[in-house]
Amino acid sequence: MSEERKIAFICSKGTLDMAYPALVMGWAALGNGIDVTIFFTFWGLDIINKHRVDHLEIAPVANTSMKMSMMGIPGNLGIPNIVGVLPGMTAFATKLMKDKMKALEVPPVREYLQMLVDAGAKLYACKMSVDMMGLSKDDFVEGVLDIVTAGDFMDMTEGAQIVFI
């Protein structure tokens, strides 16, 4: 079964928290001998954009799951939206999450992507999004194979399990 199993991820979000699911699951899949393809579309292009990948962020505004318990304050106290809009709050929340990841020995996104590429994952950028954002292949990290259309993606993922993130 695992010999032929294929999995494809569609990454459509560019926030730090939404970059990790495909990286973690993709890495697990590769470790288990499963073929992995990742298609980056819309804001997800930030994950493979070499000027953006080290600057992915998470905003505390309207994030109902980000509680002060992450900072060791017990209970369900959230970060009030009115506080979240203050300058520096997004940077603060981002640093908090990066520190938590680092403590768990989770590599930064750029390094994680390289691990996946080295392990055989195939990365593609969505043509429509690339055109919309005025990007070209030179803007992407090494390992992005090509800029492809949605139709190409459908062709190359025949028989694969597809996960949309």
Partner: peptide, 16 residues
């Protein structure tokens, strides 16, 4: 050992 080499030494699912 690099990731590439690890996957080449134990092809198709080195984890298990």
């Amino acid at each position: 050992v690099s990731t590439k080499d690890l996957f080449a030494l134990f092809p198709k699912g080195p984890a298990k």
